[in-house]
Amino acid sequence: MNQTARRKPGREQDWVAKEWAWAWPDNRRILYNRASADPDGKPWSERKKLVWWDAEKKQWTGADTPDFIKDRPPSYRPAPGTTGVDALAGDDPFIMEADGKGWLFAPSGIIDGPLPTHYEPQESVVENFLYGQQCNPKRLEYSRPDNPYHRAFADPRFPFVLTTYRLTEHHTAGGMTRVLSWLSELMPQMFCEVSPDLAALRGLRHGGWATITTARGEIEARVVVTRRMPVLRVRGQVVHQIGLPYHWSLVGLVQGDAANDLTAFVGDPNVHIQESKAFTGDIQPGRRSRKRRAAYRGELRASVPELPRDLPQVEPLQGRVPKQHELAKE
């Protein structure tokens, strides 16, 4: 039977509804579901029970597939010196953690621990509402001529939020899909998505051209004016967003400017993924200048006084700075 194709309605089964499709790998619907039962293995809540210890059969059972060592009784306690999975006690639900405990306070393992919090991205339109440290204090910055940053927030040159994303028809930057006619024809050109409000504000015409600018570079894209792109209100301030698929570049059946020319190199401290989902920029109607402009060939916009990203004692990590000859040449 094709388990993924199962469509038994939820009302015809229990509330976990395990016969609706399939959850990889073991049709387990809720991870760490041992935590839904108390230390003795009885559900905390009758209404929300997921798994429980069956003392007769001496195993975990329940509505969901138990996410625990199946035959480990709640009373099990590891002997001193035990290692690995054997060291997990019968009341240690978080089996992927070394000690089997859920961590609200994470003293090791992540660089920006021990407590979760909120930071604004490297470039934001608003000040961090939560507290004085604007950005992640352990972020990875790259101080290099092709990578200038905007002001931490409220940069008068770049008033809008930019976000990049994928379309169904293309794969990542499009290197593989822009050479396939059946996919390229479905999404043939770089475009940006803006709300009707932003279109009116900047005189953008649906189907026309727009130039999107950051301090790093400048690209052109066709304009799609759509109500799918909502206008946000952040602490009373109207925030416009510009959506940018990032599937185009210089080769293939369909070509266009690359959204990644706009993004900033700034990495998160743990896995060094760059912040390309939220940054700031500007948009103007019309096509870009014939010669594509990039920051390493000179400033695109006159600089403005910085606003602090960090509290005085904080210093972000620094990425490797390339030698001059390593910088991309046009």
Binding site: L167, S181, W182, S184, E185, L186, M187, P188, Q189, F191, H206, G207, R222, V223, V224, T226, L253, V254
Partner: peptide
């Protein structure tokens, strides 16, 4: 293919 024409009709090209 049908050619590579951007229409602006939502996601339909």
């Amino acid at each position: 293919d049908d050619g590579f024409k951007f229409t602006g009709l939502s996601y339909d090209n």
